[in-house]
């Protein structure tokens, strides 16, 4: 099973790179959807494994909820927000894409460097899965920094959350059921609120450029 997980963790990392390479907001949502599908597969694999081994169905339930919320409902909400917000062609990032991709590479190397000596996870071996998923968190944060529009910020936030979810899965081989569910509900509520906020901000400020919030400062 470890092979599947390794492959999935690398695919997740690649999905983050793909996201970083996107130029348009619609593409962000598609990349996020892809990432969520990968996570759903990951939980599915782990769920089947635990069902066969111990007879637990928890992880499969989580898998179903992930598909429901992250693969279907949140992308739907985001698409709706995108449609509500008047479309404007604006350059959405501060640096060009190649530099951002290089930055992502640096993040992965840095994560490897800083986590390679951490013991206690996976009995002393270097755990590539954890390194990949922590890189996912950092890339999510980096994505938030690199994008101006509110939708980019929301996606970055969701990627961070994905990363944390995956890190927890890899590090502990499945968190308690109630914790997983709690996190998923939180994220759902957060997205709904952020979607509404983005819409309102667009109404008030004629743009969802997060940097314009600076004007509010007294």
């Amino acid at each position: 099973m470890s092979n599947y997980l390794d492959a999935l963790s690398v695919l997740l990392l690649i999905s983050a790179f793909v996201l970083m390479g996107n130029k348009r907001t619609n593409a962000y949502i598609k990349s996020f959807k892809m990432q969520s599908i990968l996570i759903a597969i990951l939980t599915g694999v782990m769920g089947i494994n635990s069902l066969l081994k111990d007879g637990h169905v928890d992880m499969l339930v989580v898998c179903a909820v992930v598909i429901g919320i992250k693969v279907i409902y949140i992308p739907y909400l985001l698409n709706k927000t995108c449609k509500n917000v008047a479309y404007r062609v604006e350059k959405d990032f501060y640096f060009n894409i190649p530099i951002l991709i290089l930055g992502c590479c640096f993040i992965v190397v840095f994560t490897y460097f800083s986590l390679s000596t951490t013991t206690g996870i996976n009995s002393g071996n270097i755990n590539m899965q954890v390194i990949n998923s922590v890189s996912l968190i950092l890339i999510g944060l980096f994505f938030m920094i690199s994008r101006k529009k509110a939708i980019g910020l929301i996606i970055g936030f969701l990627v961070i959350e994905n990363g944390i979810f995956v890190t927890a899965l890899f590090a502990t081989q499945g968190m308690p059921f109630i914790v997983d569910m709690g996190i998923l509900m939180d994220i759902l509520v957060a997205v709904i609120i952020m979607g509404m906020m983005a819409f309102r901000i667009d109404e008030k400020f004629v743009s969802t450029d997060g940097n314009k919030i600076k004007d509010l400062r007294g």
Binding site: Y94, F110, T111, S114, L115, L138, L141, F142, M144, I145, K148, L153, G210, N211, I213, K214, L216, R217
Partner: peptide
């Protein structure tokens, strides 16, 4: 500065430093 991005960068740098 009041810029969200500046604050995000602070967080980013703090995380990297901690790592």
């Amino acid at each position: 500065t009041g810029s969200i991005h500046a604050y995000l960068i602070y967080i980013f740098i703090a995380v990297l430093t901690l790592m």
